[in-house]
Design a protein around this nucleic acid. Sequence first.
RNA 1: UGGGGUAUCGCCAAGCGGUAAGGCACGGGACUUUGACUCCCGCAUUCGUAGGUUCAAAUCCUGCUACCCCAG
Length: 372
Amino acid sequence: MERIVVGMSGGVDSSVAALLLKRQGYDVVGVFMKNWDEQDENGECTATQDWHDVQEVCGLLDIPCYAVNFQKEYQDRVFAQFLEEYRRGRTPNPDVLCNREIKFKAFLDFAMKLGAGGMATGHFVRRGQREGRPLLLKGGDPAKDQSYFLYMLKEAQLERALFPVGDMTKAQVRQVAQEAGLPVSRKKDSTGICFIGERNFRRFLQGYLPLREGEMRTLEGQVVGRHQGLAYYTLGQRRGLGIGGAGDGRRWFVIGKDLGRNVLLVAQGEDHPALYSRYVRASQPTWIGEPPAGEGVPFRCGVKFRYRQGDQPAWAVRLGEEIFLRADGLQRAVTPGQSAVLYAGEACLGGGIAEEAGPEPMAQVDGIFPEA
RNA sequence: UGGGGUAUCGCCAAGCGGUAAGGCACGGGACUUUGACUCCCGCAUUCGUAGGUUCAAAUCCUGCUACCCCAG
């Protein structure tokens, strides 16, 4: 009987994942990860409740249950980078790193040590196969597809991973949980950074990054307010600017950062041109399997610039250690540090980290894409 | 100091005798395994201030105060 180690968060998805594997006859072991030990601002530690739920579920399923602590790894391989990105004025996505470095590396290694044939999580993604090689496919619930967070996985990692709830909808997962009498069947979906949880983001960052006040200016140079520190804002952001009544009375949005002058650039109106771009340069390309085309050869694909965004039809091309993209349509607030994830239909191809975005092609790719 | 004008929510701003629009900001919620966006709800018993007229005033009258403009 093959042993599978399930990463259990105490939520419905991973609980049902364990349940399904158990029913399929695997030797299931539940493991809870604790990678962050701070309490939230209310002095609560949701991890305590989650660990409690994991134990209860495992008891019901009659499977062994352990807790592991990857705090050190999380700190070194995820959080340090996260802060460094913010210091550079960018907006990182810690969860894509967390998946590559913690859940599908540190945790996977741990599972192997337990003698498992593989690991499983409650992610809403499916694993496909082509010519004997693993594919990462979107989840069966289009509203819940989480492939965006897993695009950095390599074949070797995918090969050992199972996603038991990947072809189900959220509603089906909850129903299975309820029918099985799992106590977490109605537990609210978790949000916020994985393992850290829902936070007042500015306050959270203030614990790690110094305040450095400065001006908020329009593109024309007019000072319209003050900011508390560039790191606390991200492109396309509206709330928290505190600019009211100025100009024509419309909403204000962050459109850029001038690190050198410590100036936050803002513009008025949701349709402001500075908020939109078509061309994107992305670094750190990663591919699940072989890249979809040779270097310098443009190819069609779908792109997501953020979680839960529909696939944006686009052209892409690899050049050296970078990916260049041209979306068919205008993209709102493509933000440096965020991930651009590429798709071919249901399959996630991989992706990269956005470095810059703009309405005009970068010099490296001027004229390289076929005319629309 | 004369002459004129304006004073309504943190900001902008409707209102013109009948019992305080709206926008932005802000607060709360929904959505959401990043950050955002979006959506919903809330947000002046009170109209610079003190009196007066009137059944009834932010709206009319008078004094005072503040600011702005023009004279000087």
